[in-house]
Structures are given as structure tokens and as C-alpha cells.
Design a protein around this nucleic acid. Structure first.
Lengths: 93, 93
DNA sequence: AAATTTGGTTTATAATATAAACTACTTTAC
DNA sequence: GTAAAGTAGTTTATATTATAAACCAAATTT
């Protein structure tokens, strides 16, 4: 009947982050913040969670003198997202 | 870009309840419990929330000597569900 | 050099989900 | 008829989550 929904992805902000990363393949903190309208704190925490789950890879660099956090979806993240979407459809169709 | 997701519906169990009610139009506690595999306590709480939001109408009767809780989706609930699904698609497509 | 902005992180609090415990019966077995 | 088990839930406590507020370090602007 209904499939389980990965709790890590069943969160508005984390889902938005993953949705963005699956299409652009690489994005920085500022880009994600603008697109999602999230607060910095919330975004920081949710990026961490996705990173710790291995759904994204986070690289911290410097752009000139400013810090820059780059996020990239992993293959694990892609497949988790695809499964989530597949399972979600058992609820809405 | 991304649309807001009604927090009342963005919950696995409440979404499952609504998904069921939108197709059957009327269901009792036991039916919902079986279909969702939820615990009684969790189901009870989530039914309450949907009821208080006016998304479903709850009627308590007796089936012979046993209590029976019947749930029915309201028009407000139907439209909330439809909007939720529409908005959700901004994340997964 | 003081104030503001950038790019974040950490910590505290509010909201949510879930499980465990409980209630109020009814049915079945002895 | 009474003890045990089952039904149909509710209430309460706890764990998890999301979010906001506060903070930090450095850069830039005035």
C-alpha cells in the first residue's frame, strides 16, 4: 500500500536542497539560500544532515578571501531521492 | 520556485490518512489503522489534528456495543490535499 | 575606526511525531 | 461469575525535528 518515506528527505527544506542539487549538480551556500528562502542557520543545519547521511558532499573553500561552501549530490543521494519520489507517489496517486 | 507545503499534510501518517479518505470518502478507525500500519495512539492524535483543521469530519457512533469512529474528508480537506500535491510537484519534477 | 555586510555555525526553543501507558468497555474461557 | 484476553480507542510522556535567535570571524563600506 503506502511505502515508507525516508525521513531525511521528507522535510521541506532538505527536499528543496536535494531537488536543486539533483538538477544543478553543484551549488554553494548562497545559491541554496536564495533559492530556498531558508535562514542561514536552518540551511546550515540541514546541509550538515544531508552531508552526514552521505547524500551530499560538502567542500569548504575560499573564494578570494570569502569562505565558500559548495554542495554536490552523491550517487547515494541521487538514488535516495529517486526512491523517495517513487514511494511518495503511493500517497498522491 | 518551490511552493510552501502545508505542514499539516506534510506528515507521512496524515498524508496517508488523507490519501485514503480522498478515495473511499468514508472510513473508520480500524480501517485506517490497518491500511496505514499506524499505532492506535499515533492514529488517534493525527485524526484529531485533521479534524481540528476541518480537513476531515469525525463521527463517533456505536456499532452494536462497540465504539466506532468514522472519518470523512471535507471539501476543505479535498482542496488542501490537491494544493499540497500541486505544490509538492515543484520539488520532485 | 566604527558600522554594516557576508558567510556562515552554534545553541536554544518551539513544534512534531511516536511510543507507552492507560481507560472503558466486551467477549471468551474456565 | 470472575479472570483473562481482546477491541477501540485516548492521554501523557518522551524523543526527534525544525526553526529561530544569537553569535562569530572576517571583509567591506562610510
Amino acid at each position: 500500500m503506502f511505502k515508507e518515506l525516508d525521513p531525511l528527505l521528507h522535510s521541506q527544506l532538505r527536499l528543496a536542497i536535494m531537488s536543486l542539487l539533483i538538477s544543478v549538480e553543484e551549488a554553494d551556500f548562497v545559491f541554496l539560500k536564495e533559492k530556498t528562502n531558508a535562514t542561514s542557520g536552518n540551511l546550515s543545519v540541514q546541509i550538515d544532515k544531508l552531508n552526514e547521511a552521505g547524500y551530499i558532499k560538502v567542500t569548504k573553500t575560499f573564494q578570494g578571501k570569502m569562505p565558500r561552501t559548495i554542495c554536490k549530490i552523491t550517487s547515494k543521494g541521487i538514488s535516495a531521492f529517486e526512491i523517495y519520489v517513487k514511494n511518495l507517489k503511493t500517497y498522491i496517486k
